[in-house]
Design a protein around this nucleic acid. Structure first.
Lengths: 208, 208
DNA sequence: AGTAAAATCATGGAAAAAGGGGAGGGGTTT
DNA sequence: AAACCCCTCCCCTTTTTCCATGATTTTACT
C-alpha cells in the first residue's frame, strides 16, 4: 500500500516544520510539499495533488477559508483538514461548509494529526475534541439570544443610535407609547433593567 | 564560547517541534527543553535555567503573560522572548510591561528567531516588524479615543453594568452628585447625548 | 375561519438621566 | 505662585426612561 501524500499550507514557518517533524516517524504518511500562501499552493496543485491537505485557516492577509473553497472546486478528491489555533464557531462552521473534512486545533497531540489524516482519507470527518465541544456549546448558546421581532430590532437599533423614544416615534410614524411598549419588551427579553445594560448586552450578542 | 541555552514554552506541540527544527542548524543556540504549561515550566526552571526563554503568550487555559511575570520575579536574568500569533497591542504592551525583552510573531521567518535570541541575549529588545507597526498605529489611534480619567473609566464600567447613579455612588462611597458629574463629563468627552449612544460607542472603542 | 403573535395605542405616576451653572480642595506642572 | 486637571459636591429644571395596566387592531399561520 502506498503512503498517504500530504501537503501543508500554513503561513507560520514554525508550524510547517513542526508538522513535518511530527509526521516523519509515520511511515504511512508522506509530506510531499508545503506552501505559505494561496498562489504558491494553487501553483503546486497544478503539477501534483496530495491525498490530504492540511490547511491553516489564517494565512496572514489571505484567507484559508477562501482557499479551501477554491481547492475543493478544482480538486474535489483532495481531502482538506483545517488547521487553526482558533476554536471559534464561525471559523469551524465556514470551513466545514466550504468542504473541509476536519478541523484540527494546533495544540493537537502528535498522534492526533495522523489519526485525523487517516480518518479523512477514509471519507470520515475529524474534529478535535474541543472543537466538538464548541459546536455543542454554540447550539445551546443560541437559546440564550432572545428572539426579537422585526419592529423590536428596528427600535433597538434606533435606541443604540441615541434617539429618544419621541424621536423614534417620529421616525417610524408611530405613537410615543408604542415605542415605549417595544422598549419595555426589549428590556424584558434581554432581562435587564435599563438602557445601559440593554445596549451593552445587545452589542455583545451582536445585535448592534 | 558556549552556546546560548534556550527553553521553549508553548502549548502547541507543532510549534515546539517547529522551533526546534528551525534552531537545529544554529550551532550557537541549544534548545535545552520545553514545557506546555505553567507548572512544568516552573518545575524545570528549579533545576536548570536557560539564557533565553521563548514563551507563548497563550497557553490554552493559562496565561503566558502571568507566567512571564512569575519567571522574571524569580529568575530576572532569564531573557524572555514572547511568542504569539496575535499582533495585538494589549498583548504586546502587557508582555513588555511584565519584563519580556521581545515579541516575536509566529509567522516569523526562520532566521528571525535566532536573530531575536541574539538580540535579547545582548540586552536588546527585539520586535517583529509588524509588531513595531502595530505599536505605531496604536499611538496614532489613541487620538481618536477620548482620554478618560481613572474615575471616569470606573464610572463608565459601572454604568455599563447597569447600575444607576445612586447605586454607583453607594459602591464608590461618593455622592450622587459626583457620579452625576462624571457621567456628564463622559457624555461630553464621547460627544454623545444619552446613555444608549455612550455605551455603544464605548463598546466599539473597546472601553467596555 | 380561527387564533396566536405582533404591533399599535393610552393614562398616570415614580425614578432616573440630562442640562446648566457654580464651587472648593488636592495634586502636578511650568 | 499661577495654571491646570481631577475629584469632589451642590442646586435647580427639564426631559426621558421605567413601571403598571389594559386595550384595540394587524398580520401571519394552521
Amino acid at each position: 500500500m502506498n503512503a498517504i501524500t500530504v501537503f501543508i499550507v500554513d503561513d507560520h514557518f514554525m508550524v510547517i516544520e513542526g508538522i513535518q517533524a511530527l509526521l516523519l516517524p509515520e511511515n504511512s504518511i508522506q509530506v510531499i510539499g508545503h506552501a505559505s500562501n494561496t498562489a504558491s499552493c494553487m501553483s503546486f496543485l497544478q503539477h501534483q495533488q496530495p491525498d490530504v491537505m492540511l490547511l491553516d485557516i489564517n494565512l496572514g492577509a489571505e484567507s484559508g477559508i477562501d482557499l479551501c473553497t477554491m481547492v475543493k472546486k478544482t480538486y474535489p478528491q483532495i481531502m482538506i483538514l483545517a488547521l487553526s489555533t482558533f476554536n471559534q464557531f464561525s471559523f469551524i462552521d465556514k470551513m466545514i461548509d466550504n468542504g473541509a473534512s476536519g478541523y484540527l486545533l494546533k495544540n493537537a497531540e502528535g498522534h492526533e494529526i495522523s489519526e485525523a489524516i487517516h480518518t479523512v482519507i477514509k471519507g470520515g470527518t475529524y474534529l478535535s475534541k474541543e472543537v466538538t465541544e464548541t459546536l455543542k456549546a454554540v447550539e445551546e448558546g443560541k437559546k440564550d439570544k432572545p428572539a426579537l421581532t422585526r419592529r423590536e430590532k428596528e427600535v433597538l437599533e434606533l435606541i443604540a443610535d441615541g434617539l429618544t423614544n419621541q424621536e423614534i416615534a417620529d421616525k417610524l410614524f408611530i405613537a410615543l407609547s408604542t415605542v415605549d411598549s417595544h422598549r419595555k419588551n426589549l428590556l424584558a427579553k434581554f432581562d435587564v433593567k435599563n438602557t445601559a445594560s440593554l445596549i451593552r448586552l445587545a452589542a455583545r450578542l451582536q445585535f448592534i
